[in-house]
């Protein structure tokens, strides 16, 4: 909660003159930047749609990159940031499908195919002498 409050302050306050604009610039901490960049590769740009925000030229994608980096820098985990974006735009915004009843077939279909396939193959094996 305190982190959120700090974040609200960060958002409300005008940016200090020397602060970097994180829309296009990496975070100074490489570990945090790696987290942010991996997350941004899996957030779908709501303007250009086919692309993740990391590769999109749209303004809104830049805005999202800025917020993602700021939140990661403020200590949020990538999953928290993803959940926050989903709370705004719905599941569509995440290239990583959320596990829930409606998306279960994504994992069940391959599993069924695998089991069915193994059963079919086993029928073709020679019974052991």
């Amino acid at each position: 909660m305190r982190r959120l409050a700090a974040l609200a302050l960060l958002i409300a306050a005008p940016l200090p003159a020397q602060a970097q604009d994180y829309a296009e610039v990496a975070l100074p901490d490489p570990a945090q930047e790696a987290q942010a960049s991996r997350l941004m590769d899996t957030i779908r740009c709501v303007v250009c749609q086919g692309q993740p925000i990391s590769g999109s030229n749209a303004d809104l994608a830049g805005d999202m990159r800025r917020i993602v980096r700021e939140r990661i820098a403020a200590g949020d985990t990538p999953d928290e940031v993803r959940a926050w974006l989903i709370s705004k735009y719905g599941d569509w915004v995440s290239f990583k499908p959320q596990v829930k009843p409606a998306t279960l077939p994504l994992w069940l279909i391959p599993l069924v195919a695998l089991v069915l396939g193994i059963w079919l193959v086993s029928r073709r094996l020679r019974r052991h002498h």
Binding site: D41, T42, R44, P52, G90, D91, W92, V93, S94, F95, K96, P97, Q98, A102, T103, P105, L106, I109, P110, A113
Partner: peptide, 28 residues
Amino acid sequence: LVVVLAGTLYPLALEATSGTKISVGAPY
């Protein structure tokens, strides 16, 4: 092949049947 087919088409099927929009991308 089934994984690729399911991942490509499931969002379409889900949106057409329930109106829910999801994205299935590289992480899946």
